[in-house]
């Protein structure tokens, strides 16, 4: 199988959207464009595990074809890398499942293979996960309630680049925040392979009051089309864009 690029939006938030389009619908739009939307809901240490308003987290990820998780601040680093990797495997497995269907007939998926055969398929998925290129656009909610959590977010993102840069495939990260006074999202860091410079940008973050999650995701989709760093940018309707060697 050819080497390709996986595209992901990683949304970090602590509450419900309250302005603009429905983020669940926009996430479906992103998924349709070959972009996976993962969502991490961050809760305060004194909050219960199922706080109100965070149901949206699961719904956005589900319609965005991604993975969601609600975590306490202290577990953020490990969750961010886990969610990203899990979503990669999920997407790649989806692609492999597609191919399986073509080879084995309509109703065969990974789970329906006998355990012996699954092993071989999984080896392919793992190889792809190790070698494929990955683009992650991080979308940080900086509404007022997030302010005390931003230091943890910074650490978690640095840690994410540590995890992903241990792979053989290339990585590109970019970081955007929302809300912003002038535009739906505000660029904090342009596409870059490492997040070493992250410490410099985070103290500059200003918090706002509203949470327009839908418009933010919509604008994030556009950011993938904007840059041409990774070879050809075809109209990607598949989640796994094959660019060849």
């Amino acid at each position: 199988m050819k080497k390709g690029t996986l595209k992901q939006i990683l949304l970090l938030t602590d509450g419900c959207s309250n302005q603009g389009e429905d983020p669940v619908a926009i996430a479906a739009l992103a998924n349709n464009q070959g972009i996976t939307v993962n969502v991490i809901g961050i809760i305060d240490d004194d909050q219960s595990e199922q706080p109100e308003g965070l149901e949206e987290v699961e719904a956005i990820a589900m319609s965005g074809g991604g993975v969601s998780q609600i975590v306490y601040q202290q577990a953020l680093s490990q969750t961010v890398q886990m969610v990203t990797k899990q979503a990669m495997t999920q997407t790649l497995q989806g692609v492999v499942n597609q191919e399986l269907k073509q080879i084995l007939g309509e109703k065969k998926t990974f789970e329906e293979l006998p355990p012996d055969k699954r092993g071989e398929v999984m080896e392919v998925v793992e190889d792809l996960g190790e070698t494929c290129d990955l683009e992650v656009l991080v979308l940080v909610d900086t509404s007022a309630s997030m302010t005390p959590k931003l230091a943890t977010v910074k650490d978690a993102l640095f840690d994410l680049s540590l995890s992903l840069n241990a792979r053989s495939g290339n990585n590109r990260f970019s970081i955007f925040s929302f809300p912003d006074k002038k535009a739906p999202i505000h660029k904090l860091m342009d596409w870059t392979p490492h997040l070493d410079g992250i410490s410099k940008i985070f103290p500059k973050l200003a918090s706002g009051g509203i949470t327009p999650t839908g418009p933010a995701i919509k604008e994030a989709i556009y950011q993938f089309g904007k840059k041409g760093l990774f070879g050809s940018m075809k109209d990607a309707s598949e989640p796994y864009e094959e660019t060849g060697f």
């Binding site: 680093s77 490990q78 190790e130 840690d159 540590l162 995890s163 992903l164 840069n165 241990a166 792979r167 053989s168």
Partner: peptide, 23 residues
């Protein structure tokens, strides 16, 4: 040579800034 599949922070050298997460 691959990226470490699973780790626990306390035992992870990346967490302690003592190296990469390459296997």
């Amino acid at each position: 040579g691959r990226a470490i599949k699973e780790y626990t922070e306390f035992y992870d050298r990346g967490y302690w800034l003592k190296g990469s997460r390459k296997a």
